[in-house]
Design a protein around this nucleic acid. Structure first.
Lengths: 153, 153
DNA sequence: GATGAAAATCAGAATGT
DNA sequence: ACATTCTGATTTTCATC
């Protein structure tokens, strides 16, 4: 891993808030030149630090108001079952994120759906014993106080 | 809330994957014209469906490899204590998201930090009884199988 | 070798009809 | 839907530290 200096961090902070900030403005704000910022951004991209630029949509207005925290326990884990589960979750559009965790459960998911019905169908489809799932705990979010993609560097 | 038609959904799907996709390409892919796509995007922005465009960084390479799921229980909740807690979490750069949940706990957070030490300092600073926190459960992610910001529409 | 300034070129967005 | 205009990114060059 490479060390990020003041300019790199400044650039990343700015782009994480608005990916379409003009280079001229970036240069001003990090007290550097357009050429340098350009070179730095290219390097950050090449190194994989800057992954991509995406548009964020309002989950409620886009029709996916329900966020669910799901804890999953799998049958006597072997690597294959874990890998299969991960791979299947990657393919589900309802699954926003999936983490392997330590403790009682094996995975923590964050799922967004349009309605309870849809969530019910989703769990019945994906979290069956046929898929080696032995325990499911669903926790419904009542309200989102904060949702941030920016890592302040 | 407005209904999103096929073109709107197509545009949102594309921009959620790459916010800098040229209008010409968007138009082709949703089988419409540049002018229409331009108008739709403007309207989606004005309506708040499209929130903003941001750069995503690699959390490990950017030096924040540790993701923690935190469950928080507050003292005998009244609206003021809840609101204060939410407000405080909004100000913490370590807190990526904060949801009010139903059940045993009051809030679920997702926190990213550089190290265990930093996490320890963070919890000691923020989750004290002085701040009306009565119960904290931390769950450490061992591995991120999926992280997606796109809502497939 | 990395930086900053300047100039020329190009792509895409914005605008007007 | 088309043509024009404008903005910003891209590329190159050059001088400098």
């Amino acid at each position: 891993m490479r060390e990020l200096d003041r300019i790199d961090r400044g650039i990343l902070n700015i782009l994480q808030e608005d990916a379409s900030t003009p280079l001229r403005e970036i240069a001003e704000r990090v007290h550097s030149s357009v050429a340098t910022c350009q070179r730095r951004i290219e390097k950050l991209r090449a190194d994989g630090v800057l992954v991509k630029a995406v548009a964020l949509v309002d989950r409620v207005l886009a029709g996916r108001p329900l966020t669910v925290f799901v804890s999953i326990e799998l049958e006597k884990q072997n690597t294959d079952i874990l890998k299969q589960f991960e791979q299947r979750m990657r393919l589900q559009p309802e699954v926003m994120s999936c983490y392997e965790v330590a403790g009682e459960f094996d995975f923590h998911l964050i799922v967004t759906v349009e309605s309870m019905e849809e969530y019910s169908l989703f769990t019945r489809r994906e979290f069956t014993s046929h898929h080696n799932v032995t325990n499911v705990k669903s926790l419904f979010a009542m309200n989102c106080s904060k949702f941030e993609t920016k890592l302040t560097l």
